[in-house]
Amino acid sequence: MNRFLAYRLHDDSPDGRVAGRFTELRFDNLPPGDVLIRVAYSGINYKDALAAAGRNAIVRQYPRTGGIDLSGHVAASDDPRFREGDAVVVHGFGIGVDHDGGHAQYARVRGDWVMRLPEGLSPLEASTIGVAGYTAALALHWMEHNAMSPEQGPVVVSGATGGVGSMAVDILSARGYMVHAMSGKSAEHAYLRSLGAGEILSPEVASQPGKALEKAQWAGAIDTVGGPVLAWMMRTMQPNGVIASVGNAGSPQLDTTVLPLILRGVRLLGINANSPMALREAVWAKLAADYRPRRLATIGQVIDFDALPDAMDRMLSRATRGRLVVRMDNESPDLERGL
């Protein structure tokens, strides 16, 4: 009776295209691991949408259950660090890519990948934050480690309506920073202001090549886009400004000079969210306290499991904002019976 639903990605169509479909599985269909998690919520990330469309060779072995983050409760554990009922979060470590992930009602993973939720965060809050919010918080963690503080001046955030960008605007504004949000979505200006953005910029400001150094504007920047936007940020940073590079939604290429680095002392930080567990625990502790987002209900939209395919299509067409969170509805009597 240990039946549950998963959204599985397959490459078995006649034309070789990747396609997803809902599939009923049993626990013995799950990959090896020592912690079985009853998934409560899972986020939808741009990487998940790309994987479901078979793009960028993200998934290399099929079938695969996507979903690079999840939250829920331990259903069974052979790892003494976790007990049945513990509220936990998992992201990274290859889940949803090399190992079945969160787009299922149950997941089995290694105990080394599991983090107990900090006191005061629910599974819904944890999945609304998800890997996107963790990435934004990790960026700020290292930026403040490099001496950035609110009194030094404004911070600009690119891709501000996305999951990472929205979380960054919210957390930064809550910390007292003056936030300038960059977005090409003119219809979302009210949304960005509701998160705490004081000014809104169009990406067009970064579209034309400029001098190696331009007017110094920013004490800090969180960039999700890459390409010309990141190059523009580098040449418009204040002396000793700090940039956190977290994504390449626009382009992985970077055409710039070393002059901002050696003449203004600009610090360019690379942010890898697949970080060691000790760092995860430290940053998640901040997310439950000093970095706690104030507007999760505005940023997050909870959808039912059966709406997952359509939501990923909308994300690929840039028709979403903030965080999409999938409710797994593990309270179905049919699924609970016999567990």
Rank of each mutant, 00 (worst) to 15 (best):
residue 2 N to K: 07
residue 3 R to P: 00
residue 5 L to C: 08
residue 5 L to Y: 09
residue 6 A to I: 06
residue 13 S to D: 15
residue 20 G to N: 01
residue 20 G to L: 05
residue 21 R to I: 09
residue 22 F to P: 01
residue 26 R to M: 06
residue 26 R to E: 04
residue 27 F to G: 01
residue 29 N to C: 09
residue 31 P to M: 10
residue 32 P to L: 14
residue 33 G to W: 06
residue 35 V to D: 00
residue 37 I to F: 07
residue 47 K to A: 02
residue 54 G to F: 04
residue 55 R to Y: 14
residue 56 N to I: 02
residue 63 P to H: 08
residue 65 T to Y: 06
residue 66 G to P: 13
residue 66 G to S: 14
residue 67 G to Q: 02
residue 68 I to M: 11
residue 71 S to P: 10
residue 71 S to V: 08
residue 79 D to E: 00
residue 81 R to E: 10
residue 82 F to E: 06
residue 82 F to H: 05
residue 85 G to P: 13
residue 87 A to M: 11
residue 96 G to H: 15
residue 96 G to V: 15
residue 97 V to L: 10
residue 103 H to G: 12
residue 105 Q to A: 06
residue 110 R to H: 00
residue 114 V to K: 02
residue 115 M to A: 13
residue 122 S to V: 04
residue 125 E to Y: 01
residue 131 V to R: 14
residue 132 A to T: 02
residue 134 Y to N: 07
residue 136 A to L: 04
residue 136 A to Q: 03
residue 141 H to Q: 13
residue 151 E to M: 13
residue 152 Q to C: 12
residue 154 P to K: 08
residue 159 G to C: 14
residue 160 A to Y: 00
residue 160 A to H: 04
residue 160 A to D: 06
residue 162 G to N: 08
residue 165 G to V: 05
residue 166 S to Y: 11
residue 166 S to D: 09
residue 172 L to T: 03
residue 172 L to Y: 00
residue 176 G to T: 08
residue 188 E to T: 05
residue 189 H to I: 07
residue 194 S to T: 15
residue 195 L to C: 03
residue 197 A to G: 04
residue 198 G to Q: 10
residue 199 E to H: 13
residue 201 L to Y: 11
residue 210 G to S: 01
residue 213 L to T: 12
residue 216 A to H: 11
residue 219 A to C: 12
residue 220 G to K: 09
residue 220 G to T: 10
residue 224 T to Y: 04
residue 227 G to P: 04
residue 228 P to E: 04
residue 235 R to P: 04
residue 241 G to M: 04
residue 245 S to T: 08
residue 256 T to H: 00
residue 256 T to M: 03
residue 259 L to K: 05
residue 260 P to V: 03
residue 264 R to C: 09
residue 266 V to N: 00
residue 279 L to D: 14
residue 287 L to E: 06
residue 288 A to Q: 14
residue 289 A to P: 00
residue 289 A to T: 09
residue 296 L to C: 02
residue 301 Q to W: 02
residue 312 M to A: 12
residue 312 M to N: 09
residue 313 D to E: 12
residue 315 M to Y: 06
residue 316 L to I: 05
residue 318 R to E: 15
residue 319 A to V: 07
residue 322 G to D: 03
residue 323 R to Q: 08
residue 327 R to D: 01
residue 328 M to N: 01
residue 329 D to N: 03
residue 330 N to F: 10
residue 330 N to K: 07
residue 331 E to Q: 12
